[in-house]
């Protein structure tokens, strides 16, 4: 059997003075003993409150940060042993914060996704073909000639998703890919991710929308203060005791009458949304 696209094993990480010769003071650990697997052909969701360590975990996987302890492997190879371009051919990463400088067009931004595949520093006709297919798939082809910095938040997110797809990775890490999208495009993007997973991609996304995770994702990890509080399918994680512990007792879980999946609702009037301790 092929090694899983991503395997994170007992990883710990702390910001602060790590690796700066003052280990005695000890960094505060924002991730502790985290293990998870991202499988091909499925949508994996990372859930959890702000500051739980979801984005940090992504940054560790793409090598932007180095773990204090533990192992991260990509298709069985230690992540640290991959050079940055080989890693970029395997892993597409859409961070939460993206800037826009110098008035690049949407078409140019999507073509930039081809960077890890370029041979002589210029895109070929093949690269252009890939980029234009990715624009089509994310419903952004009509924006190709527009300046990227004039787009709305939702349009930007779809264009960046197109750029990530143009990278033709086998793994996609998406940090809140639906945060700025309207209801229609949220479902459209998740349906697209679902079909990409069906084509064999391994996709892991961070989301705060528990219902989108319930509806589309196969494997869920709930993070709480740097630890995995629950892991499993939507039924296990969203109906389990950990969810209320993390998000507060006032949260209600009912059955979606049509799909039978869990549906998460907010507190009743008069009940305070109990914040995590």
């Amino acid at each position: 059997m092929e090694a899983p696209p991503i395997a994170v094993s007992r990883v710990a990480f702390g910001y602060g003075r790590a690796g700066h010769g003052r280990a005695s003071s000890g960094p505060e650990e924002v991730l502790q003993d985290v293990s998870l697997t991202v499988a091909a052909g499925r949508l994996t969701a990372l859930l959890g409150p702000n500051g739980a360590g979801k984005s940090t975990l992504f940054r560790l996987i793409v090598g932007r940060l180095q773990p204090l302890r533990g192992e991260i492997s990509i298709f069985g190879q230690p992540a640290a042993s991959l050079d940055s371009v080989s890693r970029a051919r395997l892993v597409g990463y859409l961070p939460q914060e993206v800037r826009a400088a110098f008035g690049f067009s949407v078409g140019e931004v999507v073509l930039m996704g081809r960077y890890p595949h370029l041979r002589f520093g210029l895109e070929s006709a093949h690269d252009r073909g890939v980029a234009s297919r990715c624009l089509e798939r994310t419903d952004t082809a009509h924006l190709a000639a527009r300046r990227f910095d004039t787009l709305s938040g939702g349009e930007r997110q779809r264009v960046l998703l197109a750029a990530a797809l143009a990278q033709e990775p086998r793994i996609l890490l998406l940090d809140e890919p639906t945060a700025a999208l309207d209801w229609h495009h949220q479902h459209e993007v998740l349906a697209l991710l679902d079909s990409l997973a069906a084509e064999g991609l391994a996709i892991c996304l961070v989301t705060h929308d528990l219902n989108l995770a319930a509806r589309y994702c196969h494997q869920l990890y709930l993070l709480e203060a740097g630890r995995i509080a629950a892991a499993g399918g939507p039924d296990e994680v969203l109906r389990g005791p950990a969810l209320r512990r993390v998000y507060g007792q006032a949260l209600r879980v009912i059955d979606d009458p049509d799909l039978g999946r869990p549906l998460i609702l907010g507190p009743l009037p008069g009940e305070a949304p109990c914040p995590p301790a």
Binding site: S84, A88, G92, Y93, V98, A100, E108
Partner: peptide, 21 residues
């Protein structure tokens, strides 16, 4: 450094994901 500067226009984080240090 032209190709790397293009990637950096969209931020360090995204550039890193494309394989740029």
């Amino acid at each position: 450094l032209g190709p790397a500067f293009n990637q950096l226009a969209l931020g360090e984080e995204l550039a890193h994901g494309r394989g740029i240090n």
